[in-house]
């Protein structure tokens, strides 16, 4: 129960979450009033399925952003996961291989950033290229077949509740537990807020940063599994857009890219805004090509409204 309560709390370090929730409500109300089909069960189920990959990857991204970093390799890890799930190996081995690859990428990113002093964008850009190359070697073109249980766990439903909602809730609760119920969460906020002060107060900053990157990779792995289940096949470039979109979702949810400020609820709200905007524009028959413009303007408006103390990245 505490996890749920904490999930809904809006502490000062949650950032401009009220603005994000307000934006989401405005979009939701406008959609419900103007689009009769918006609340149809099929549409809501479709909306959930479309948004789940983004929500899960953005939750992992939040850990990294809270440290003041950025993980653009998320998309490649999603792609690699979908391709590994189509390999001609025992199903358990495929799952373990996905997790092992994700942990390896996370460790490489974390070690590079925390111990070898490489800038997060540069380090994760490098692993992004390596991951994308790896995905294309495993599966040069989209195709293959994923285990049936994976497709069923994504596409099915329990009564009227689609399975994707369970994925979404499980990922959100896991992230909330890590952030609000474990010392790691506190260390994360401390490291991102001021790493020098955190170190002086005994916070293992380097270990915390490495853990954040490993968690980001593991969440990306989970997102990749969901995507593979949804497509029922692998796609070597299927995750390409999520590296940047996960950052966008987190930023829309009030997570500060400078680190130390953000929340799980904010990230979920940010991803929901992106998902609903896409869905609303599809329902309203807005050109798919205009969606990029609308999303860009929305992001710009929200970022402009969150004036920071620092200038730069």
């Amino acid at each position: 129960m505490n996890i749920v309560t904490n999930f809904l709390k809006v502490p000062y370090r949650a950032g401009a979450i009220v603005l994000s929730i307000g934006t989401l409500l405005v979009i939701l109300i406008a959609a419900v009033i103007t689009l009769p089909g918006f609340l149809a069960p099929e549409n809501l189920s479709n909306l959930l399925a479309q948004s789940t990959v983004l929500v899960i990857s953005a939750l992992g991204q939040t850990f990294v952003i809270l440290t003041g970093g950025l993980d653009v390799s998320v998309g490649s890890i999603i792609s690699v996961t979908t391709t590994i799930m189509t390999l001609d190996l025992p199903e358990v081995v495929r799952v373990f291989l996905c997790i092992a690859v994700a942990v390896a990428f996370g460790l490489a990113n974390g070690y590079g950033v925390a111990r070898l002093n490489v800038h997060p964008i540069i380090m994760t850009l490098a692993t992004m290229g390596i991951g994308q190359g790896l995905a294309l070697i495993i599966l040069p073109i989209p195709g293959g077949r994923v285990p049936d249980w994976l497709s069923a766990s994504v596409a099915g439903s329990v009564g009227p509740v689609p399975n994707s909602l369970f994925w979404l809730i499980a990922a959100s609760l896991a992230a909330a537990w890590l952030l609000y119920r474990r010392p790691f969460g506190l260390y994360l906020f401390a490291s991102g807020g001021n790493d020098f002060n955190a170190r002086m107060n005994g916070v293992p900053v380097e270990r915390t940063v490495i853990k954040a990157y490993v968690l980001s990779a593991l969440f990306a792995c989970a997102a990749g599994m969901f995507l593979a289940g949804r497509l029922a096949s692998g796609d070597p470039k299927g995750g390409a857009t999520f590296g940047i979109e996960s950052v966008t979702a987190a930023a829309l949810g009030g997570v500060h890219l400078a680190g130390g400020i953000g929340s799980i609820l904010g990230t979920v709200v940010g991803a929901a805004i992106l998902g609903i905007v896409n869905n609303v524009m599809n329902l309203a028959n807005v050109s798919a090509f205009l969606q990029s413009v609308v999303k860009g303007l929305l992001l710009l408006a929200l970022v402009v409204s969150q004036r920071r103390k620092t200038i730069g990245l």
């Binding site: 950025l70 964008i121 940047i244 950052v247 966008t248 930023a251 890219l257 400078a258 990029s292 413009v293 999303k295 860009g296 303007l297 992001l299 710009l300 970022v303 402009v304 969150q306 004036r307 920071r308 103390k309 620092t310 200038i311 730069g312 990245l313």
Partner: peptide, 15 residues
């Protein structure tokens, strides 16, 4: 405006 360079330049590119 002190917006994040990553997000703002990315938004401009997306537009």
């Amino acid at each position: 405006v002190r917006a994040s360079a990553v997000i703002s330049t990315l938004s401009v590119s997306a537009i």
